[in-house]
Amino acid sequence: MGNIWNIVILRPITNFLIVLSDVLFGNFGLAVIALTIIINLILLPLTIKQMKTTKKTAELQPKLQALQKKYANDQQALAQAQMQLYKESGISPTGCLLPMFIQMPVWVALYQAIMRVMAVYPESFLNLSSMVYSWDIIFKALPLKTTFLGMNMSTSNFIMAILVGLSMYLQTKMTTNTSAGNNPQMQQQQQMMQVMMPAMFVFLAMTLPSGLSLYWIVNAVIRMVMQYFYTGWGGLQPWVDKIAGILHIKKKDTPQTPVSSKKSGNKGSKGPISKK
């Protein structure tokens, strides 16, 4: 199993990262950014599917709540009605999980590749030898110069850890209103996630090489960009409005407000047109 993992996922990603670093002027930071973008592009169809399902699920929330009220005393009838609703809406309630399960190994492999090529531990560098292809470009590029913007990417960095927390928070906040609808329980859970996840990642970033932090930051930014084009500012809309107000930016009319924002009462929120 370990061998299959190495041959199919880990070795290609590791070698690609090394080649990218060499091509991008021996700059490890740029290589991490480029690889994160490329992998996100490859996984884009899955990500869009995931977003689509999440959005549709959010749109169903008022109807689901109505059903919960209607069948408060009959769980079986409630389950049947919910299933019927999902079926009619053409979504699978577990649809957002499959893309996540497919993407997860890639993220883990990317993490492992970053850890290996940075030679954080002597053992990981020794084992890198068995991971690399016998290409001249690979041997010429190793070991990678792990300095980026004056920071050593192979050691933890406080600023990067803070940036990880900030980007994660913004990303989580952005997705909040798009999926919670008016379900107070779900909103409460999401509010907790908004704080817990970034806090956990800050903690990790402070103990792990900042090359990994760079990957998390870039990944969060890419996710936010994709989210913006799909559902707008989402939970960040009130902040965007405030900032726009402060900066006296003339508001432009937008044809459609993101569904979730509208539902949570953020009237006048801005965002690009959602695709149907």
């Binding site: 370990g2 993992w5 999980l97 996540m100 399960f101 997860m104 883990v108 993490y111 492992q112 850890m115 954080v120 531990y121 002597p122 053992e123 990981s124 084992n127 956990m200 990642f201 903690f203 990790l204 103990t207 792990l208």
Partner: peptide
Amino acid sequence: AASLLLVVVLMIGAGCSCNAQVTQ
């Protein structure tokens, strides 16, 4: 799924994920 994600994140953080070699 959320628990699994959490476990993976923690394993990554611990530097132990699928990769005992990083233990010195």
